Computed example of a mutant assay.
Amino acid sequence: MLAVPQRAFVANQPVDMRRSIDGLALLVEAVLDRSPLSGEMFVFFNKSRDKVKLLWFDRHGFWMAYKRLERGRFKLPVPADAMDWTDLLLILEGIDPLKLSLQDVWHNGEPVHVKVPGTRATHGLPVY
C-alpha cells in the first residue's frame, strides 16, 4: 500500500531532473541535511519550475514521482523549506497556498467557512 508522508522538505535550489533516486538521495543528505531513509518526503523542482520530483522512502524501498506541467509554473511559497501534505497538494495542483481565496459556499442558507489544516487561508467548503 502506498503510504504518503505528512511533511515534505523542499530543495530551494533548482535540481537537474535527469537525477535518479540515488542522485536525489545524495542531495537530501548534502543539501537538506536529512536522512533519505527517514520516511519524509523530499521535493525537487527544476530551474524553470515546470517539473517536480518527489522522493520518499517506505519500509520496502524508495518511491519517486515526477510531474511535468504542459504550461505554467509551480508557485512556491517563500520560504519553502518544509511544508505539510495539504500545502504540497495545492502547489502540485497549481494553487499558491499563500494567495488562496475561494468563493463563499452556502449550505442550508448559511455561508460555510472551513479552515483546512496546514493552509494559510479560510476556504468556503461545504460541511455535511
Rank of each mutant, 00 (worst) to 15 (best):
I95Y: 05
G72L: 04
D16R: 01
G109N: 09
D104M: 06
W63F: 15
K99I: 05
N108S: 14
F57V: 00
F74E: 01
D87A: 15
P111H: 13
L32E: 04
E93K: 14
I91E: 04
E93W: 09
P111G: 05
D50V: 03
K51I: 00
L100S: 10
L102Y: 11
L102T: 15
A121Q: 15
A25E: 06
G39Y: 04
K99D: 08
K67N: 05
K51W: 03
V52A: 00
Q103P: 04
S38L: 12
P77H: 10
D33F: 07
G61R: 02
D84C: 15
R71V: 07
K99Y: 08
V105K: 01
K67G: 05
R34N: 06
P36A: 09
A80I: 12
D96Q: 06
V116G: 05
L92N: 07
R120I: 08
H123W: 13
W63V: 03
E29I: 08
A121K: 14
K75A: 13
L100P: 06
F45Q: 03
D81A: 14
G61M: 07
T119V: 14
P36V: 00
D58M: 02
R71Q: 14
A65G: 13
W85M: 15
A80P: 08
F74S: 00
D50Y: 07
W106T: 09
W106R: 10
K51C: 07
P77W: 05
G94D: 07
M41W: 02
K75E: 12
A80Y: 09
L27T: 03
D96P: 05
N46E: 05
L32A: 04
K53L: 06
A65S: 13
N46R: 03
F42P: 01
Y66M: 08
F45C: 01
L76W: 02
L69K: 13
L102R: 12
E40Y: 15
I91P: 00
F45D: 00
L55E: 04
M17C: 01
L76G: 05
K99V: 09
G23K: 05
I21M: 10
V112L: 06
A65C: 14
D104W: 08
